[in-house]
Design a protein around this nucleic acid. Sequence first.
DNA 1: GCAAGGTC
Length: 695
Amino acid sequence: MKCLARTLIICEKPDAARRLADALTESKPASYRKYGLTYYELKKENDILTICPALGHLYTVGSKEEVPRRRYPVWDYVWKPIHEVEKGRERQQEWLRAIEELGREADHFINACDFDIEGSLIGYMILKYACQAEEKAGRMKYSTLTKTDLNNAYLNVSSNLDYDIVKAGMCRHEIDWLYGINFSRALTESARKHSERYTTISTGRVQGPTLNFIVEREIEVKSFKPTSYWTIEVTVDVDGTIVKAQYSKKTLETETEANHIVENVKGKSGKINDFKETKMKVSPPYPFDLTTIQTEAHRHFHTSPSQTLRILENLYLQALISYPRTSSQKLSPSIGYRTIFNGIARCPEYKNLSSELLTGATLKPVEGKKFDPAHPAIYPTGAMSKTSIEPRARKFLDLIIKRFMAVFASAALRLNQKASFIVNKEYQFYINGSRIIEQGWFKYYHPYVKPTETIIPPVEIGKEVVVKEIFAQKHFTTPPPRYNPSSLIKEMDNKEIGTKATRAGIIDTLYKRGYIVDEAIRPTLLATKVIEVLTEHCPRIIDVSFTRELEIQMNKIETGETSHRAVVTDAIRQLKIIFEKIASQEKEIGKELSEAIMESKTQSVTLKTPCPNCGASLRIIRSKRTKKRFIGCSGAIKGECRFSLPLMQFGILKILDTFCKKCGFQLVSIKSKGKRPIISCPKCYVEGLANRRES
DNA sequence: GCAAGGTC
């Protein structure tokens, strides 16, 4: 009997392993479990294939020697199993144990992780260290998890691993580690030595520039000088219908100029001297990549990017949507458009719309430019939920299904109308109308698109229009808006820093570090100081060009123009110079930073409204005796004032930047888990209690 | 108690 060869195929994640196993056999592949890992076995020609998932990275960069976390700078690192470096990685430890055992049985090996740099690296590390079989391994490349693609990929496995890509990936990890760990430790330790209190002050290739966006925006907002301008607001009578009209100059610099126009136009009339109608095609939106759905969900559901990612992951695990961590705006016919539409149609609320699209001649989606080598855009699988979906996830699924339908729909058609008339010989005005003449995709994407219409009465050249009401309106220019988590993630996407899967988490980190506050994001004093220190010592780490340069170096590693070693050695050389200077200025840096931490902490508990009793500042205080929190007067320390106000004891308390309309006292908000924040006035609350007692 | 990257 001929002995069958065994091949171990490593995938990036459980879902990919299952799909690959399904694709490579006509029957259902046998599945087994080992230490919590599910793998598959099937016979293919003269091979037994063992298909086994990783769980993302199972190896990472760690300190070479067991040095205290406080020590810096550190230059010596080594690739280790991730559970040896990070806490809470017991699952990865078990998986590695399982893969090691499976590797012992195998003769051949294939890296079938996602077709991108990280995928090449994840598979390589496992094959090299867990299986000790890097030279016996090949690389399988596929860009969709469909049967055809996966089978083709299996037939075209390369005979070697893609070492150049692996080296580029290792380089990225190592550079990030060297910069991130060393600067974070330098900032943290210098402040700790000064204040003798520990606060994590971190930075890195992505955190740095992201925080800098916020600090720079705040400078723009603070230094903004509003200037005034005027507009002409005018309504006219057309055949008895009153409509708005626009003056040919949208904004006027002076009040004199605006008043002059009003005076010369008031009570007069004009004749339509031009009328144009233009049809405008409004194309459907692109399929969802992660960033786009994160901003779209924020717009419609007010969910933060990280909440959105969490909800999408759940939908994905329930097999209701495709893989959400994608930056692609493209779909592929191989996902089976018709099957998906048939699936969607089983749900009554989508039945009619879905059927309409199915009766069309061809199913061709509109697509965007962004492409992801590993995954297509986010789409609904058309599967029905086996368990009940929570209402919020249900809304997300609705958004994804409707978006999916919309991208296959026809363009909408808008009719824009523009009539012009001149009053008092020289003042030109326009009447603008707009109507939807073909709904197209609007119908499918309702209520996530709300097309507006401006209906105007029929006009023709020569018709008289009478000015009814006209006045000059004063306005002020406004500063650029502060970022919110949604617009910030979009900015990171535009500048191409971080990845689709990490951006939301990095913004969460900036909040956690006490660098940024509020939904309309403002930097704290600490953030400003961190940016100051980094600007002086390493402007590179807060600049997006660091990522660009790193990408160039990585490309050069892939093409063989430079080596992984050369790039890392050069980085260490540069860092050594920087850290010598930092060491000599550690005291000053520590003083600045720890003072900023103190300031931020006091700021967060000090009210802007002074004590109504003595005029000293009011603070949120926690009683040492009762452990309860309340608003107390700072005069209490000297025994001068005993003014106090009670506060709710549970939930996250925040001092708001708004004030009570009734009494002018500063408002506070209490946010309990899973609930909307309650905004209240501490002073009116007490007075309300007093009133109730009286009555 | 540190990065950024992948994944549950």
